[in-house]
Design a protein around this nucleic acid. Sequence first.
DNA 1: GTTGACTCTATAGTAACTACAGGTTGTGAA
DNA 2: TTCACAACCTGTAGTTACTATAGAGTCAAC
Lengths: 143, 143
Amino acid sequence: MKIGELARLTQCTVETVRYYEREGLLPVATRTEGNFRAYGPEHIERLRFIRNCRALDMSHEEIRNLLGMIDTPAAGCGAINEVFDEHITHVEARIRELEELKQSLRTLRDRCQSERSVNDCGILHGLTEMGSAPRKEKHTHLG
Amino acid sequence: MKIGELARLTQCTVETVRYYEREGLLPVATRTEGNFRAYGPEHIERLRFIRNCRALDMSHEEIRNLLGMIDTPAAGCGAINEVFDEHITHVEARIRELEELKQSLRTLRDRCQSERSVNDCGILHGLTEMGSAPRKEKHTHLG
DNA sequence: GTTGACTCTATAGTAACTACAGGTTGTGAA
DNA sequence: TTCACAACCTGTAGTTACTATAGAGTCAAC
């Protein structure tokens, strides 16, 4: 199977497939005589795995960790649970963050109930009067 | 006032200040004889505005739009409300997305209640069995 | 004058793709 | 066999919002 078909089967692009190979997520493919990549069922399965993880907003690093556990099973699946639990925690943290953000936005938005001149806009005044927010600490890869 | 002080006052870095100037968010500063940037109160105010918007996860484009409205006030603040409303809508959409994601993660996670070998892990089987997720459409800048 | 902090520009890197240029291969139809 | 077109290849650059670094210049205090 060539790369176009693999991409179609796993609902992504050939560029993404090549990118995953370069990133080491997908095993390097064998080549035809014409230097085309040749794929078999194990690549479908692996790429499907990767795409599902990505759909769950897992980072490449997280995926790499999981793949490592699959490829060199040393113990039970406790470590996999840990990756998942950590990811869930990150998702929850990001949700909380966005909820707070939404509150702030609503509070600001409620300062402007009727059309007035830009110079009198409660939102803009709010944005100007607020002390500037401290720089954010690095947080999740979820945005 | 020099750039280090401005950065300190607005709780960001000199690199970020220079970046905002390059991006056109912050007006170009005048220069001292030694080619150091010189800032006054209007820069403090503008940078504070920008940082507050960023703290609200507004994109540079959104900020640029708001600044345009401030600098060339043509009508009332209806347009500002629109920018805000649209941003709030994006935040809400992202929250929903993450909530669904969290559900999926929990469902998968619940397939693994006890320590077993990696080969028998319900999570991994789930990730492999799932049809791969279709490519995501471009969505908000919120992650 | 010296030293150390601050400033400058230019460049590159981060994450996860996405797009494109220019060249090669393969397949089906004429 | 030839041709046209689709698919493939590598390499490079771009997206967003920073962040870091190299190497050089400026400045204030000692």
